[in-house]
């Protein structure tokens, strides 16, 4: 991408088009992402503390149900149609944490409901999240291999 040869006329026009693009509000977006991302982390930490102190899970295991709970919240917010309205302002603050993953899976599943359980929901559920899973598994495998060989 971007390496394709452009004719002089195309290059000239693309320069003009680039100039005409309204600039995104970088500072506002970064601030909102920082605050909302931080809030997600605070909730996650609160849940971890809840599972370890109140539910008496060992601290190193309390993270797993906490992550699952955050996924559940993200999925529910998507189902109720609120997630996209919040994400419009939060941006990366909600997209980068596991909430973004939950939203991409649930929104796809909802969207393709009409095409049936098999070819719709089940097949299309991971259209957006599929690459995250693929790279996650591949990375985990490589790290695991390094861990097994060198440590």
């Amino acid at each position: 991408m971007g390496k394709k040869k452009l004719t002089p006329a195309q290059r000239k026009y693309q320069e003009k088009a680039k100039k005409a693009e309204p600039k995104p509000l970088y500072l506002r977006n970064a601030l909102f992402a920082f605050l909302s991302g931080g809030l997600v982390c605070v909730i996650g930490q609160g849940l971890t503390d809840f599972y370890s102190r109140i539910m008496n899970l060992p601290p190193e295991e309390a993270g797993d149900p906490a992550v699952a709970t955050v996924i559940l919240i993200g999925a529910l917010l998507t189902g109720f149609g609120v997630f996209d309205n919040i994400a419009k302002y939060a941006g990366a603050g909600l997209a980068v944490p596991v909430t973004g993953f939950a939203n991409s899976v649930v929104s796809s599943a909802l969207e393709f409901r009409e095409e049936g359980l098999l070819y719709g929901i089940s097949a299309k559920m991971f259209t957006l999240a599929g690459s995250v899973i693929t790279f996650g598994v591949v990375t985990a495998f490589i790290i695991g291999l390094i861990y097994a060989i060198f440590l």
């Binding site: 693009e21 509000l25 149609g81 969207e111 957006l128």
Partner: peptide
């Protein structure tokens, strides 16, 4: 949207243009 871009409930930021 669902044919060209993302599911309706997908939460992403739209570009200014």
């Amino acid at each position: 949207e669902r044919q060209y871009r993302y599911p309706t409930e997908y939460g992403g930021q739209r570009r200014s243009y």
